[in-house]
Design a protein around this nucleic acid. Structure first.
Lengths: 216, 216
DNA sequence: GTCTATAGAGGGATAGAC
DNA sequence: GTCTATCCCTCTATAGAC
């Protein structure tokens, strides 16, 4: 790993975070990295490929930082607290912002789409494993799968990050409300058999919306 | 309103949806609109201003289509169904995709940020009014505000739209799980006094995370 | 591996004919 | 209002010196 190579990756992350996908050109990235523009093509072949690499490597590094904490989570409460911490810290480091920008570009670019999916999956794997632990034996399991919930949570984080860029106060109130929904989940969890019966009854009466869940 | 003016707005929406914010230039938009490139500057002054106008006007038009349906919602169940319908239909029309792209560009552009915030607020107003009705007298009101929830829902829609571009199956499972969380909300709603007591007790025991809600 | 220089495409924006 | 033509800038990518 040459020094220039990693300088360019850092430059790409900084540029994606600060200037967005539309403002991330070979020139702007090279300027942020304090490197020569032509070296992007020497090391990565194209700007696209540099962004793909930066997205993958930076996400892998950030996720690794939190792996231990995910593994220690034993309640929905703790998961929510970790989510809040993660949101605040990654807002500074910019990994969620980078993911959001790559995701926006990925709608029209197969390369970026593959990188975005891979990067997101790194976060999702951790969230999903944690949820799977929490849902074991919980009445909530009758109503939501770890796979689906993990993806929903990851997507919501991305949306909130973008929302934060245009309305920080609104984003904060959104986060607070979603956290409170987490408290609600925990209460139902604690209600145990009562909640289980109510959920089962409700699901039986529900039409189309829960058809898939009923069969499982 | 000249014909060319609205052709350009339609062209901008199409281009934002199909090529993203990074691929929306005066030339590509004019091509999509089957109009002359110079007319963008005659009618709107700049590409940015055209995108801002397109974002505002298209969102206003789409929101107006759903206003009556929002007003008719009387249960969380119905709100979820409307959300699913809206998601499917707007995926075709592309308003959510356009919002996501403008939002991505808005992180670094004051003009776009104002337009994105305004457009989002049009959706949020409808969701919030509906939620305010549903939360009146509900135990859920102790735990989440209509303002915060409405913003959380809007942000999640944006995130899921972006996720759908890179992993359609994953996005579908995310939506299904979030819908099931809605069922959970409805069950708690029906539990009435039991849920209210449990939530109150839980909030009293909760530290930092719910400090704000406790005082209200 | 790193640099300069440059080709060639596409970008925003304007002048001026009609 | 609409068109062509054009200016000047930035973009990706490469060639070739060091």
């Amino acid at each position: 790993m040459s020094d220039t190579r990693s300088k360019l990756i850092d430059g790409a992350i900084t540029t994606l975070r600060d200037k967005g996908i539309a403002g991330s050109s070979a020139r702007t990235i090279a300027a942020a990295a304090d490197a020569n523009q032509a070296l992007i093509f020497y090391h990565f072949g194209s700007v696209d490929e540099l962004i793909v690499t930066a997205c993958r490597e930076s996400t892998a590094a950030r996720v690794a930082l939190y792996r231990a904490q995910f593994n220690e989570v034993t309640s929905f409460r703790q998961l929510l607290e970790l989510g809040r911490e993660l949101h605040t810290r990654e807002r500074g480091a910019g990994n969620v912002a980078v993911l959001a920008q790559v995701l926006a570009g990925a709608q029209q670019d197969r390369n970026l789409a593959a990188a975005a999916q891979h990067a997101l999956s790194l976060w999702i794997v951790e969230i999903e494993a944690t949820l799977a632990r929490l849902l074991k034996g919980s009445p909530i399991a009758a109503v939501a799968s770890a796979e689906g919930l993990a993806r929903g949570i990851a997507a919501s984080f991305i949306g909130i990050e973008l929302f934060e860029g245009v309305d920080p106060k609104g984003a904060e109130s959104a986060i607070a409300s979603l956290e409170m929904l987490g408290v609600l989940v925990e209460v139902v969890d604690d209600l145990g058999p009562v909640a289980r019966r109510a959920l089962r009854a409700r699901l039986r009466r529900t039409g189309r919306a829960s058809a898939k869940t009923l069969t499982s």
